[in-house]
Design a protein around this nucleic acid. Sequence first.
DNA 1: ATGGCTTATTGTATAAGA
Length: 255
Amino acid sequence: MKFATWNVNSLNVRLPHVLDWLKAAQPDVLCLQETKQEDGKFPYTALKEAGYEAVHIGQKTYNGVAILSRHPLTNVQRNIPGFADDQQRVIAADIGDVRVVCAYIPNGQALDSEKYQYKLRWLDALHDWLKAELLAHPRLLLLGDYNIAPEDRDCHDPAAWVGQVLVSPPEREAFRQLIQLGLHDSFRLFDQPEKSFSWWDYRMAGFRRDLGMRIDHILVSDALRSRCAEAYIDKAPRKLERPSDHTPVVLQLIP
DNA sequence: ATGGCTTATTGTATAAGA
């Protein structure tokens, strides 16, 4: 079973890339973030023709998350229960014997921004919900755009990023709190190249100069750890014309 | 590196992303 996550920065613009990638990479499950469209515009038909059913929660302009799957999706949950949020950032479903949670964690903008406080509150709510979710579903995957580079090696220039979002100590602590729930960063279960990144800024020729960050992750619960077979970042879609600024992150799980 | 890009919007400049 191949699972992947990809922030597509507008599914309307990126649908051709998504369809091409589904065909080339053949994932069983693909979690999308930043679909940036209301559900009425979501391309259910095109995805169905490609062999994937989908569940989605979206809004105009911002946010929006979806799970695409070749296998039936059941027990679908939208948003974090009990957390009042007008931003559409979470969708979860059962696929096979696994609980799949797709999340678009807030960016935070800047440390002195209200959006940063929202990010930390949001991470707290996610943590508390996942704690309960793990009791009900021991086999759980949390895939998405975390907007957190967990360690300095996940940042192209840690010194230049001190004092900014994605790397601040409270964000990294929130990531560790998720790990404390009994989750593992699947990417780091395997040897990886140095400078492994999942996002590069559109500006400053960020991709060409490899000024990237690893902020998209797939966490696996204790019960799934021994089933992890391979984890990698597929940089190919980032090289296309008019790419998303993120590229897919992949985990292969033994059935 | 302090925004040089990209996206969406009842647009023609602004907000947001990361």
